[in-house]
Amino acid sequence: MDFSTFNDAERAHIQRLIEQKQMRDFMKFYTGLVERCFNDCVNDFTSKALTTKEETCVLRCTEKFIKYNERISLRFGELNQELMQQQAATAAQQQPGANP
């Protein structure tokens, strides 16, 4: 997205929106991680204590999901950048005179 036509007040407002979104995204990441590891690891309801097996599973699941999230975020960033460059190139080609 091209912000160059936006004024400072607009940019400051959008910056604030992005920060709020990041806090909300982290929260969703956290609650989503808990739900995922709970669902995948906890299946014994004969007691309200976590079994050793469940606890080990939850810790591995957490560790793995953090690494998963890092890797996929990286890839997502790269692919998104590529896409934006492609779109910019296509837009430039469609400008009058850009294509001899």
Binding site: R60, K64, Y68, R71
Partner: peptide, 24 residues
């Protein structure tokens, strides 16, 4: 890409490659 048995906390090679291809 991620099996839910969680035999360990690492991303192994197969999982890592699968993630990259899946995103693409």
């Amino acid at each position: 890409c991620i099996p839910t048995q969680y035999l360990d906390g690492e991303l192994n090679k197969g999982e890592s490659v699968c993630i990259d291809r899946c995103a693409a």
